[in-house]
Amino acid sequence: MIRPELVCPAGTPAGLRTAVEAGADTVYCGFQNATNARNFPGLNFTPQEMERAVGHAHDRGTKVLLALNTFPPAGKFDLWRDAAALGAEMGVDAFIVADIGVADHIAREHPGARLHLSVQAAASSPEAIRYYCREFGVKRVVLPRILTVPEIEALAAEIPCEIETFIFGNHGLMVEGRCSLTNYVTGLSTNMDGVCSPAADVHYDRDTEGTMTTRLRDVTIDRFGCAETAGYPTICKGRYHAPHREDGYYAFEEPVSLNLAKLLPSLMGAGVHAFKIEGRQRSRAYVRKVVGAFRRAVDDVMAGETPALDDLVALTEGRKQTEGAFKTKKWR
């Protein structure tokens, strides 16, 4: 069995140090601009912070991946080019890319740099993955969260690169890198600006009877009674009316978190090289807890012991969780 790399979120310098302490093999992070898909206020790294963070991680034997996983619109390519140059200079261990132009640029201008294909590239078949490997020398693919474990195992035999899968965190519903829902409502693009449901456009309104309405700009995403906890308004997690439904319903998916704790051993058996934990926007406490728990679980499986999976399941703290598409095709 391959010893899988635990790839952990680092939204801030402090978050990076926390993930390293908690046992991350690898952390991933981005600069404070549109070059990465978590371009949120208060998140990410200045060039100086990034340089120090890379040094800190490398001193402790932890790798650093730089997310350059958005799509530069024509006329703005320089921002991505400069970010790649900075990353190369700082010695990041790999670049996570989605755009064909960005992949080609790094492959040519920074030969020897390691490329990982972001989930935002939506490479969901052996042919798609092989294309990126052949043309740009991609060494690892981050798989879309739509494949079952047997499908991942079959895929592993057909591609010449490593596989990274998400195992925990926010659960995207749409094909990532192919969603313009946020732009339709807010004028900011997930692909070009790196934002999904931007906080500046989010509103929580409570009426006199205590009902909470959540909105993204002028669009109502959901409503909650006094006893319910209002979720963050993301279009694909909202409730809507449809002709064949009596009440408002989650047209796309219940608001759930992905948690593949119970599938860890089978994913390791399927030939997955790296497990990714989502959540660069989450707190240090969350990172410490989740990374620490998965660190122990992976080590237990490698040692031939039964991991304490219940601890991992409990991490979602009462929130609904799902094994998504990984468990069964019926999810589709």
Binding site: S124, P144, I146, L173, M174, V175, R178, C179, S180, L181, Y184, C236, A242, H244, R245, Y249, A251, F252, E253, A325, K329, K330, W331, R332
Partner: peptide, 16 residues
């Protein structure tokens, strides 16, 4: 605006 691996038409009718 988006595509998915899941069919939302089927979902609205309680199917997969």
């Amino acid at each position: 605006l988006a595509v998915s691996a899941r069919c939302y038409h089927a979902r609205a009718h309680g199917r997969t």
